[in-house]
Design a protein around this nucleic acid. Structure first.
Lengths: 149, 149
DNA sequence: CGCAAATGTTTGTAGCTACAACTATTGTCT
DNA sequence: AGACAATAGTTGTAGCTACAAACATTTGCG
C-alpha cells in the first residue's frame, strides 16, 4: 500500500524525504509484526536479537561490548537486556578470568531451545516478507547499504 | 557500508531476512541522525512529526485521532505528545463544540516558526540522504510499499 | 613502581512507551 | 425516553531507553 495512503499525506517535499519517512514507517511496521510473533515466546525483539547474536558465536562466549556492537539498535542497553535474559535462564554470565573487567556471556541450552522453537515458525514469518521477490530484496539491501554510505 | 560489516555478522539465513534486519538497522541509523539534528531545536523526532502533520492541515484543525492515524510510529501516545507540544506553545487545543468528545488541535505561529527554522537546515539534511540517486530513492519507495503489501 | 589514561561494564535518574482500564459524549435501537 | 454500543480521548502503571556519571580493572609510561 502506498505511503501516501497509509499516512494520509498527499505529497512529500522530495523523493529522498519520502524515502526516509518510508524507511522509518516500514521499520515500525516490521518491528510490530516481529514483536507480535515473539510475544508467544515471552521475548521482545531486542532480546531475540541478542539471543541470535549469541547463537552465532556459540559455543564461544561474547563479551558485552561484542553484543552491543552487533545489535540492530545500538541504543538499547546491553547490560540490562542481558540481565533480563539471564533471569529467564536463556544465557549465563561469567567474569572472564584473563581480563576481569569483562564478562563472558554464553547462551544456555534453554536459550538455544527457545530459538529452535521460534525457528519452527520461520516459514510463516518469511511468508510475510515474500510480497517482494528475491531480486527486489537484493536491490533493497543494496540501496539501503548505499544510503548509509 | 555493508550490513554484514556493520553488524559483524557473516551470513543471513535468507535475503528476505537480511532485508528485514537491514530496514530495522537503517531505520535506527536514520532515526538517530534525525534526532541529533532536531536536538538543537529541543524537539524529538516524534514531536517534529506531529508538528509537520499539523502544518499539513493548517489552518484546518485536526483531532487527536487524525494525528494518530498519520503518525509514523502508531505506538507513540498522541495525547501526551500533543500535551508536550502545547506546553512548549507550539500548538493549541480546543474542545470541539459540534462534538464535545473531540479536541481540535491547531499549530500556533510559534510552532510554524520552529518548523521554518528547521526547514532552513533542510538542504544539509537532504545532503545526508543523497548518497543514493533519485532513481534509487524511487525504487526504494516502490519496494518498501510493495513489502507492506 | 606509581599514577594517569584506557577499557569494560554498571547504575541513577528522568523521561518515554505499551497496554489496558477508565471517563465522557454521542449514536442507535426498540 | 432508556439502555447499550460506539466513538474520542485520558490516565495509571510497569517496564524500557537515553544520557551521563560512576566503578573496577588493566595498560602504558615517566
Amino acid at each position: 500500500m502506498s505511503l501516501e495512503h497509509d499516512l494520509q499525506q498527499e505529497k512529500f517535499s522530495s523523493v529522498h524525504n519520502k524515502a526516509a519517512v518510508n524507511i522509518l514507517y516500514t521499520s515500525s511496521w516490521l518491528y510490530n509484526l516481529n514483536a507480535s510473533r515473539l510475544k508467544d515466546y515471552d521475548i521482545t525483539p531486542e532480546q531475540f536479537n541478542v539471543l541470535r547474536i549469541l547463537r552465532g558465536s556459540h559455543p564461544k562466549p561474547l563479551m558485552l561490548a561484542d553484543i552491543a556492537l552487533r545489535m540492530i539498535d545500538k541504543n538499547s542497553n546491553a547490560t540490562r537486556l542481558v540481565e533480563k535474559l539471564r533471569q529467564k535462564g536463556f544465557l549465563k554470565r561469567e567474569i572472564c578470568e584473563e581480563n576481569r573487567r569483562q564478562v563472558d556471556i554464553i547462551i544456555t541450552d534453554k536459550g538455544l531451545n527457545v530459538l529452535k522453537r521460534i525457528d519452527s515458525d520461520e516459514a510463516e514469518w518469511l511468508a510475510k516478507l515474500k510480497t517482494i521477490t528475491k531480486a527486489e530484496a537484493q536491490e533493497l539491501n543494496r540501496i539501503l547499504d548505499k544510503l548509509r554510505g
